[in-house]
């Protein structure tokens, strides 16, 4: 068995297992950490798929950024009692049935489908090509993504800050 195969299964199990822990854990902090492992697993899968730059971005943005955000969110919205870390699960049965059905259907279709595989040679590095594309074909999405981030920052600040005391008069409802 080749190394890549072993690695694939290893990373897949990490990814899926951690994701499952995340979903089924009763403690939200555990969930958040499980999500981190899952995301790292996904990043490793990217490496297997010759996408080194994306893998690095995944680690930086997801694990380094989004996850920290989520943890901050968890901390700020609980009052430190372990009691509050509990998360409630509802409509477990219908949700599981639906999810399993979706997974089964997707897997069935994926296996059945006759994909047009074309073997790509393993590239030495993708960063240069990606950079050229960003400045070429993808210049507009690149710029729009910038605007998107700007808007997101404005929005996040707007929503997260508390209003200064003298102006914060509650509305009549």
């Amino acid at each position: 068995m080749e190394l890549t195969t072993i690695l694939f299964y290893l990373f897949s199990i990490i990814t899926i297992g951690a994701a499952a822990v995340m979903v089924f854990s009763k403690n939200i902090v555990h969930s958040a950490f499980a999500l981190m492992f899952s995301l790292i697993g996904v990043a490793s899968l990217y490496v297997l798929l010759y996408a080194d730059f994306i893998a690095a971005t995944q680690l930086l943005v997801y694990v380094g950024g989004i996850l920290i955000l989520i943890l901050f969110g968890v901390m700020l919205t609980t009052q430190g009692h372990s009691f509050d870390f509990k998360t409630i699960t509802v409509n477990l049965v219908p949700a599981s049935i639906l999810s399993v059905a979706v997974a089964a259907m997707l897997i069935f279709v994926f296996v059945k489908t006759d994909w047009l595989i074309s073997e790509v040679a393993e590239p030495n590095e993708t960063i240069y090509d990606l950079g050229m594309m960003l400045m070429g074909d993808y210049i507009l999405p690149f710029i729009v993504a910038g605007v998107l981030l700007l808007i997101a920052i404005i929005g996040a600040i707007l929503m997260a800050t508390r209003l200064s005391p003298q102006t914060s008069k509650p509305d009549t409802e």
């Binding site: 899926i16 995340m22 477990l92 949700a95 999810s99 997974a103 897997i107």
Partner: peptide, 13 residues
């Protein structure tokens, strides 16, 4: 696909 359905599961439940 499995990851997707786990995500769906979390969202729904």
């Amino acid at each position: 696909a499995i990851l997707f359905s786990l995500g769906l599961m979390a969202v729904l439940s």
